[in-house]
Design a protein around this nucleic acid. Structure first.
Lengths: 173, 173
DNA sequence: AAATAACCGGACCGCTCGGTCCGCTTGTGT
DNA sequence: ACACAAGCGGACCGAGCGGTCCGGTTATTT
């Protein structure tokens, strides 16, 4: 049994979708009213399901992390650790550049949600690539994430691929 | 003649100093009230000299840019373009890491103040280093600024030097 | 010392935001 | 069809913000 009435469930999904769009576009400063409007509900409805703005943001990020976990697992399935690493980073970058605001959301709430296992996966990808001699040894998985993220945040409109290339070159062994 | 009463001039400087501290600590979201409190004046006094929060921020950034210009001129005086470039970047990084919030202030107001001439200076430093074969040719001066800035913003507490090293390696020819 | 203009600070305004609450609506089980 | 709970949305609240304004204060000039 669903514990949730049919219309409620529908509204909840609309809210989550709207929140994803709005947070992705405007970052953590997006207002609940904007999200509610976009979802076609009153903002009271939003607060009933997510007592706090941060709760809503966590829910959105949880979806995002799920996507990233999928990428990570595919990378681990490859048998060329070096190429897998660089491809993984590029795919993550691509995804993130379609949702620039989520970066700042992740920063806003200090990785609170289930980022731990994602962290583990990235750790494996990085150390595999390091053992294969494709990546310099003095960086940790967090470093990779932060460096890449930073380059993407800082890059102007169409230039992020070039910036990423510079950082990736810096990461090579 | 000073155009400004003695006490007014004193207060103006206190405000500018306080604003520099507060913006450097909290970025563009710092409140005028906080600055006024720290300067020991009413916030009306702040608004009289700087009709807008942005005006105050420009004034603070103008000082900051002056400092950067000084660094740039020293770099241009050196006769080892490559070393001058990397030293310049490191000094800028050092200064910026002491005032993390100013980064975001620069982003907030799109380089409005007299950043143009600073831009020219950095351009010279970069192209000199490129001609000397120390820096890859496919980056422009803006790229250097943004890449470095990004790495610094993204770096966790004590790690920014390592991050900078990665980016600088990525910039080498 | 008196006159004047510059200057000060804080009360005040309007706005936006996150969050609460309650009277009305609507889906659901019988 | 009916009754009841689950759900809804918007009025409402308080806090914090940038910015305005004015009655009182203080530096300056003669």
């Amino acid at each position: 049994m669903t514990e949730l009435r049919a219309d409620a469930r529908r509204n909840l999904e609309r809210v989550l979708d709207a929140a994803t769009e709005v947070f992705a576009a405007s970052g953590p400063d997006a207002s609940i009213d904007e999200i509610a409007r976009r979802a076609g509900v009153g903002h009271g409805t939003v607060f009933r399901r997510f007592p706090t703005k941060d709760d809503l943001m966590y829910a959105v990020l949880e979806r995002h992390f799920a996507q990233l976990r999928a990428f990570a697992n595919e990378a681990l399935a490859s048998d060329d650790p070096g190429a897998a690493f660089f491809d993984f980073v590029r795919r993550v970058a691509e995804l993130n550049m379609q949702t620039p605001g989520l970066h700042r959301c992740v920063v806003h709430c200090g990785e609170k949600p289930g980022a731990a296992d994602l962290h583990v996966l990235v750790g494996k990808i990085v150390s595999r690539a390091q053992r294969a001699g494709a990546v310099r040894r003095d960086v940790k998985p967090d470093d990779v994430q932060l460096l890449v993220r930073s380059a993407l945040i800082g890059a102007p409109a169409g230039q992020w691929r070039r910036y990423l290339a510079v950082v990736l070159d810096g990461l090579r062994a």
